[in-house]
Simulated scan of single mutants.
Amino acid sequence: MGSTLFPKLLGTYEIELHKLVENLGNQRFGKIIDVGAAEGYYAVGFSLISPVSNILAFEMESKGRELLSAMASLNGVANRVSVEGKCDLNNFATALAEFESALVVMDVEGFESELLNPDAVPQLRQCHVLVEVHDYDYVVREIGDLIKKRFLNTHTIQLVPVKERQIADAPGLLKRLQFYPFDAWVLSSLNECRPLSMYWLYLKPFDSLLLQSSK
């Protein structure tokens, strides 16, 4: 499905987000919407760490939807993971309409500039959003600045940069293989083929900050 397999099997995939994802899973969202869900790494993952959440996963490719449904069944969460095809502004707004606050996870290869528009989808002003930004040179430029500008008055904005993988990121015994040729093999297994200019944005609505401070 276009993403690297070994890091997912090793548990190091998008390691930059691990702590943030864990914290989001503990917030008990009623609904989590995963746009660009691929085979379900995040859709099924969030259903496991947030058992009170219902998951709606949008995936354009039929093979991805097939794998996603199979993964949800294998993990016993098919009753809480709904799978749909392409996400556009209309069905995105419909998915968010009934919820006061939801979590949106998005990886759509540049289409985030279309979907993450609070003027077109006003409910986004109350949503938590975790988005992989695709404004590095070979996709589209300056999407990140556009998104930050759109949410500047409603959200705190955290930028999470890609970090270069090191042997220390490897799990268990693999991190002890710091000698040739094993070190090269370990680093190759951890490699997600991302440019270091890539990053994620986490958008946290101001209302949730006020709610937390009042507790």
Rank of each mutant, 00 (worst) to 15 (best):
S101W: 11
E16M: 00
R194Y: 09
F151M: 10
G144N: 07
Y13D: 05
V35P: 01
G172N: 14
D34P: 01
D135V: 01
N117K: 01
D88F: 12
Q27W: 05
L177F: 12
Q178V: 07
L159Y: 02
Q123N: 15
G172Q: 12
A57Q: 02
L130P: 01
E112S: 09
L96I: 11
S62M: 11
D119T: 15
S82L: 14
P205K: 09
I147P: 02
V162T: 00
S69P: 04
E109F: 13
C87K: 13
L56H: 08
S101A: 13
D88V: 13
G30S: 04
R194Q: 13
I15D: 05
Y41T: 06
F151C: 07
D119Y: 15
L68A: 14
Y41A: 05
V104A: 01
G85W: 01
L74I: 15
Q178H: 08
M106K: 00
A72S: 11
P118R: 09
E22A: 11
V105I: 12
N26I: 04
G76Q: 08
Q212L: 14
L203K: 09
V77H: 13
R176L: 14
L190G: 03
L24W: 01
E100W: 02
E98N: 14
V160H: 02
L210D: 04
I33E: 00
P195Y: 03
L10Q: 06
P205T: 09
F182E: 04
L20D: 00
P195E: 03
A120H: 14
Q166H: 10
Q126T: 14
G64T: 00
L24E: 01
S189T: 09
L174M: 13
G76L: 08
I55W: 02
S50Y: 02
I143H: 03
T4Y: 04
N117Q: 03
R28V: 01
N23C: 01
L146D: 11
G144W: 06
L201W: 00
N90V: 15
A57I: 04
Y41R: 07
Q178D: 13
L196H: 05
D107F: 07
P195A: 04
L201F: 06
E109W: 14
L187H: 08
K149Q: 13
D135S: 01
S50C: 03
N79E: 12
L74C: 11
L130R: 01
L5D: 11
L152W: 10
Q178M: 08
L159W: 03
L10S: 06
F182L: 13
P181G: 15
Y202L: 10
M1N: 13
F29K: 08
V81P: 00
R125K: 15
V131M: 10
H18R: 00
E98L: 12
A72M: 08
T154E: 06
V186T: 09
A102H: 05
A57C: 02
K63V: 14
L152S: 11
T156F: 11
F179T: 07
L56K: 05
G40A: 07
